[in-house]
Amino acid sequence: MGILLVYSFWHVTPSFAIEHTFNLNNYTAIFTEPLAYKSFLLSLRVALFSTVGAILIAYPFAYFLAKRAGRLQLILVVAVAVPFLTSYILRAYAWRTLLGENGIINGALQAIHVIDRPIQALLYSPLATGIGLLYLFLPITILPIYATLERIPDSYLEASSNLGATPARTFREVILPLSMPGVLVAAVFTFVFSIGEYIVPSLLGGGKQLLFSETIVLRVNSDLDWPGGAAMSIVLIAMTLALVALVGKRARKAGFF
C-alpha cells in the first residue's frame, strides 16, 4: 500500500521510464480525463446495481432459509456455499452461454414469444457485468443476512402476531430492523467486491465501456503507466475504506453493532 502510494506521485515518460518527481497529475487526471472518470462512474453504477439486485434476491431466500426451510435448511445452506468450490472464472464464463445472442435466456424468451429477436445488450454490456457480479457475490450476500435472521427468536414473531400485527407489519417493524446489521454487512461486502472486480467485466463487459478496474489494468499493462494505475488504485482503495468506515459508524450509531 505504501509502495502504491509513493508510485502514485511519480510520472512515466514516453519511453516508459518512471521519473521520481513528486506531482499530483495522476490524481487530477482521474477527474479530468474522460476515460478515467467515466469508468469510475460506471463502476459505481454497476456495483450499486449488483448490490441492490443481490440484496433483493438474497433477502427472501435468506428468510426462507432461516425461518421456513425446516429440514432442508442444512442442504440449502450447503447449496449456497457450493459455488465457491468451483472455479470463479468458470462461473463468470458460464454467463456468456446464458446471456449470448444464441444463449439460453434469449432462446427461452423467444420460445415463449416475449421477444421476436435476441436482445444483443444482454451480453458484452455493463448490464451483463452487473448480472455476473450479482450472481458471483450472491452467496456473500445471502449468508450474513441468513445469519442475522436466524438469530431472531421465533417468539418475537409470535408475540407480534398475538398483538394483532399483520405479517407485513411484523416484517416492517420487527424482522427488518433486527436483520439490518446483516443487510448492511452484506451490502458493504457485495459493493466493495463488485467495484474492484476485474475478471467479470473483462469476460462479460465487452470492453466498449470500461469499468474502473479495467482502466487501471489498461494504464498498467498497455500504457505502462504504473504511477497512473497506482493513483487510480489509491482512489479506489480510499473510497472503499471510507465507505466501510461510514457504514460502520452509521451502524454503530443505530445500535446495530
Partner: peptide, 13 residues
C-alpha cells in the same frame, strides 16, 4: 505512441 494512445482513449471513452 503517446498521441495514438491518447486518441485511442478518446475512442474508448
Amino acid at each position: 505512441i503517446d498521441a495514438w494512445g491518447k486518441a485511442w482513449e478518446r475512442f474508448k471513452s
